[in-house]
């Protein structure tokens, strides 16, 4: 009688084994040559999870050299990818998401109880057995900060040419189109033609660009808290660039620009709300611009007006207030130039205010970034590695 012995396949424990000779190929396929779209239909941050599952196996066999080697090669490869793609938002966002996910994994599976409070029983079984990787966590944390700074830099460079045009020059309120004097409108359009460049960017284009940044970060599985900080930094940049331009240009210091600005800022605020980003602190970074827009619109005649301006413009320096009042240009018979005595009144009222007396905003200022710990609910043994990654030399253990 024939007996068939059925061999039960050993359960996958969420570890990946490879021969040391294959480390270079692993890093090449998973980091150096990785394109974000290859893993777009899979679990977000799949490369980070795969790397961590390889680290777990090296830890399991107690091979500290293998752990060292893989982590060093990985960090090295990520740095090179970033250097090669130093103006590519998508690549930078992708590696920020993956580096911070790898960092979260090193914490979540460290065995340190402080990081395990949200772990499932299965996740606790998957904790590292032999090594404490706290020093590598520090390296990955520093690397994440570097990548974040690159991401902000890339996004700012993309937005830079759009800001003045969309915030101050384009006419997003249709009814305002006829308010500007002919000279101004002609100058703008002839400037564009002479330059051979595209017609000015609209607010819609700026918002579309912000939307693209946001969607890319979300698609890559970047922690929402980090995405919020990127958006806040970009709003700071919109504020700084727009305000500086306003402070240097007579032709935009008018009542109608004030109206335009207020409308544009409300549209940006609406966008934040739509993306559930209104708690990010982004709109607070625009307070100086909001006040400048209001300053262009309020009455500037009586002593009461001066008092109102002083209590309104808390986020603007005295120098900025005076500059805007001096530049203020009436565009029709209902508006009037601000008198010297009115400006002197404002100066007298605010002379004791303690502030940094500078006219222009520091466009390079960056808020310190915080990376909150974000453990994942994903269980490592459920991960599937698509064949398209060319990692068939990895053995599931």
């Amino acid at each position: 009688r024939q007996v068939t012995v059925q061999r039960k396949e050993k359960d996958f424990e969420g570890m990946l084994e490879y021969y040391k000779e294959d480390e270079a190929l692993l890093v090449k396929n998973l980091v150096t040559d990785m394109k974000p779209n290859v893993v777009s239909a899979t679990v977000p941050c799949l490369p980070a999870y795969i790397l961590f599952m390889c680290i777990r196996h090296a830890d399991y066999i107690n091979d500290d050299q293998k752990v060292h080697s893989l982590l060093t090669s990985t960090i090295n490869a990520i740095k090179k990818v970033l250097k090669k793609n130093n103006d590519d938002f998508e690549m930078t966002s992708f590696w920020l998401a993956n580096t911070s996910r790898l960092l979260h994994c090193l914490k979540q599976y460290s065995g340190d109880e402080a990081f395990m409070t949200q772990n499932s029983a299965k996740q606790n079984e998957h904790c590292l057995k032999n090594f404490d990787l706290a020093e590598y966590r520090q390296v990955l944390s520093d690397l994440s900060i570097q990548i974040y700074q690159q991401l902000v830099r890339v996004a700012e460079a993309i937005m830079q040419p759009m800001i003045v045009s969309s915030m101050l020059e384009s006419e997003s309120i249709p009814s305002l189109a006829g308010v500007k004097p002919m000279g101004y409108r002609n100058r703008t359009s002839s400037f564009d033609c002479e330059d051979g460049g595209p017609a000015g960017y609209t607010l819609e284009a700026l918002i579309r660009q912000l939307g693209q940044f946001y969607t890319t970060m979300a698609d890559h599985g970047l922690d929402p808290e980090i995405g919020e900080q990127v958006v806040r930094q970009l709003f700071y940049s919109i504020n700084a660039v727009t305000l500086n331009n306003l402070l240097l240009r007579k032709d935009v210091c008018s009542w109608s620009t004030g109206m335009q600005l207020r409308y544009n800022i409300s549209q940006l605020e609406e966008w934040l709300r739509g993306k559930n980003l209104h708690q990010s602190g982004a709109i607070a970074t625009m307070e100086p611009l909001i006040q400048a827009a209001q300053l262009l619109q309020v009455k500037k005649k009586t002593s009461q007006d001066a008092e109102a301006i002083c209590s309104l413009c808390t986020a603007l320096s005295l120098q900025q207030i005076v500059k805007i009042l001096n530049l203020y240009t009436p565009l029709n018979e209902f508006e009037e130039r601000v008198t010297v005595s009115f400006i002197r009144d404002i100066q007298n009222r605010l002379q004791d205010r303690i502030e940094i007396n500078q006219l222009l905003v520091d466009t390079k200022h960056t808020f310190p970034v915080l990376f909150p710990y974000t453990p994942s609910a994903l269980s490592l043994e459920t991960l599937h590695i698509p064949a398209s990654l060319n990692l068939d030399f990895l053995t599931r253990v």
């Binding site: 060292h68 982590l71 090295n76 057995k129 032999n130 090594f131 404490d132 020093e135 520090q138 520093d142």
Partner: peptide
Amino acid sequence: RPPSRIRVLLKAPTLAEMEEMNIFEDDESP
């Protein structure tokens, strides 16, 4: 519950030290 395991701290250079060691330099040149 089982006592928590003692794990060996793996020493790592800092990112700045890695940068000083030039490990991030392009090694593609001949």
